[in-house]
């Protein structure tokens, strides 16, 4: 699906505005919001002053060159960054108007409501069935029938037809693309509100990538999706809104800190960017 080779820059002519651009409100109806968010690793500031709202039932893409802090920001949206020693968030990340770093907030509950799909497919060394059932089992979810839950999640992730006869077999027998859809199915099975995707297609071939992108369009009807991607064409194809980040070197230390440059509807970001740096990046002049 790589329609544009690197030496053929994505200009406004090659990027079709997503159909939803027309109906998309100017300001997102945000379920998840960042207010003046800084993310630190120890004393190193990885991301600075991010203000962003992720709209309900929208797909928001975070794009930008390596080291611009987009994955770091993504991981601070469901407190996965808590696992990194020394990681700290300043400012406010709120989910449905509740500060997810607030006192008394349970990180485990945050992660249950805001699911995450990783760069490399990471199925558990268990059967396909047990991979899907895992989340429901550990969170003590009340389910009338685990079989139905597994079938529903796999169907929604467009994987059911391929695996329905081998549910008890190891998930490691699946192809990379199937494993990634399994990981998405596993995430849907615990019924989160938001799904964060950290470069979900970077380890997949173009066909598998296309299937995941189609799946995202389906999931968008019920979930709010935030996707980090290195692939600008992918952002242009799937996202309703796009946020462009870049890294600025600190004048004294030389450490590079990520900043949000521009945020808007995908059609606008790729068609008529307001910032010179955005234009340079999407037309392939750096990054």
């Amino acid at each position: 699906m790589e329609t544009n080779s690197p030496d053929q820059p994505a200009s406004s002519a090659t990027v079709r505005p997503t159909p939803s651009d027309v109906a998309l409100p100017d300001q997102p109806d945000a379920v998840l919001t960042c207010d003046n968010v800084d993310v630190y690793y120890g004393s190193f500031k990885a991301v600075e002053q991010v203000n962003l709202g992720f709209g309900l039932n929208e797909i928001t893409a975070l794009i930008g060159p390596s080291g611009c802090g987009k994955s770091t920001l993504l991981r601070s949206l469901n407190r996965m960054n808590d696992l990194v020693e020394g990681a700290r968030v300043a400012g406010t990340v709120s989910f449905m108007n509740e500060d997810i770093y607030g006192p008394g907030v349970d990180a485990i509950e945050v992660r249950r409501r805001i699911g995450m799909v990783f760069q490399k497919p990471n199925p558990f060394p268990k059967s396909i069935y047990d991979n899907i059932a895992y989340g429901a089992r550990v969170t003590g979810m009340k389910v009338s029938s685990m079989d139905d839950l597994v079938e529903e999640a796999l169907t929604r992730a467009a994987l059911w037809d391929e695996v329905k006869d081998k549910l008890k077999q190891s998930a490691y027998g699946l192809s990379g693309g199937q494993q990634q859809r399994l990981c998405i199915a596993r995430t849907i099975a615990i019924k989160p509100d938001v799904i964060l995707m950290d470069e979900p297609c970077s380890a997949l071939d173009p066909i598998a990538t296309m299937r995941i992108e189609d799946l995202m369009q389906e999931l968008r009807k019920d979930y709010t999706i935030v996707i980090v991607t290195h692939n600008m064409q992918q952002a242009a194809r799937v996202a309703d809104r796009t946020a462009f980040f870049t890294a600025l070197p600190d004048e004294t230390t030389g450490n590079r800190t990520g900043v949000l440059v521009e945020y808007g509807k995908t059609g606008q970001i790729f068609g008529a960017p307001n910032d010179k740096r955005t234009e340079d990046y999407i037309s392939g002049r750096f990054g």
Binding site: N78, M80, L83, I108, E109, R111, R112, G115, M116, F118, K120, N122, P123, F124, P125, Y134, G135, V138, T139, C183, R186, T187, I190
Partner: peptide
């Protein structure tokens, strides 16, 4: 045990204790 397994488990709402015990 790869850290991906650990992260996958925690991202599904498992506690650190459940992650240790089950994965």
């Amino acid at each position: 045990v790869p850290s991906e397994i650990r992260q996958g488990s925690l991202a599904l709402g498992a506690s650190p204790w459940q992650t240790v015990w089950r994965q």
